[in-house]
Amino acid sequence: MTALNVDVATRVSTDAAERFVESYYPALQNARSTLASYYVAPSAMPDGKPIPAIVFNGNIIQTAADFQAMFENQMPPVFYDVQCYDCQVLNPSLVTAGAQTAPPESGKNMTILLMVSGYIRFGELRDGPIRGFSETIVLAPNPEAAAIKGRGKSVKGWLIQSQNFRMVV
């Protein structure tokens, strides 16, 4: 088995984080009907805890579909202003049972810890109050992306496995 090159891991994780941030936060604002597609397929960890694990401001959301429904039906218009983000490789060689994986040297079998912070404004007023937010996300490779060579932009390369959003007081 080939070890993952540190330069490759850095490049792949940074690229994944950038693409994710540039896609996900605009979707929260303008494409709420697509939110569930940003999450791994529902499953459970060996201890029975559900995946994806979603916590929004201290509230556990059971499924990605519930998260999407909350944004579509309960949330006012929202504006995210991402100020900064950082990523770290959590697991450089994730192996998913029954899923086709990318070659180990590609760096596309890792999980990535993504920390995002910035400002959020609820409502349509441009001069409305803003609050800080902090979000921690674990991204996992999308097994469908590994199976499709030369994928288009419609297939996301990385999906949310765990998410914890907090407004900052």
Results as ranks from 00 to 15, higher is better:
154 S>P: 00
56 F>D: 11
35 L>D: 05
41 A>Q: 13
133 F>V: 03
30 N>A: 10
22 E>S: 12
162 S>C: 01
105 E>Y: 12
122 F>N: 10
8 V>W: 01
40 V>A: 09
137 I>P: 06
59 N>Q: 14
123 G>E: 01
137 I>Y: 06
148 I>H: 09
96 T>V: 13
75 M>R: 08
92 P>H: 04
114 L>P: 09
74 Q>P: 00
129 P>Q: 12
52 P>V: 03
71 F>I: 06
61 I>F: 03
127 D>V: 05
151 R>L: 01
77 P>G: 14
139 L>R: 01
78 V>W: 01
147 A>F: 01
153 K>D: 13
30 N>D: 02
73 N>H: 11
88 Q>F: 07
42 P>C: 12
60 I>H: 13
12 V>C: 11
10 T>H: 02
95 V>N: 15
57 N>C: 09
61 I>D: 02
135 E>R: 11
123 G>Q: 00
47 D>W: 02
82 V>A: 02
19 R>K: 11
67 F>L: 14
69 A>M: 12
112 I>G: 06
142 N>M: 07
81 D>W: 02
110 M>E: 13
164 N>W: 00
2 T>P: 14
128 G>C: 00
167 M>P: 00
44 A>Y: 10
86 D>M: 15
108 K>F: 02
139 L>G: 09
131 R>W: 11
22 E>W: 03
132 G>M: 09
69 A>G: 11
42 P>V: 02
44 A>M: 02
6 V>T: 11
55 V>P: 03
64 A>Y: 05
134 S>L: 10
44 A>W: 00
68 Q>H: 08
125 L>I: 05
74 Q>W: 00
72 E>V: 15
157 G>W: 00
94 L>N: 06
51 I>L: 15
2 T>F: 04
98 G>H: 04
129 P>E: 14
69 A>W: 04
91 N>L: 07
153 K>Y: 09
142 N>K: 09
75 M>C: 06
12 V>F: 05
145 A>R: 04
70 M>I: 14
70 M>P: 04
117 S>I: 08
155 V>D: 08
23 S>T: 15
65 A>T: 13
139 L>K: 03
30 N>T: 15
50 P>M: 06
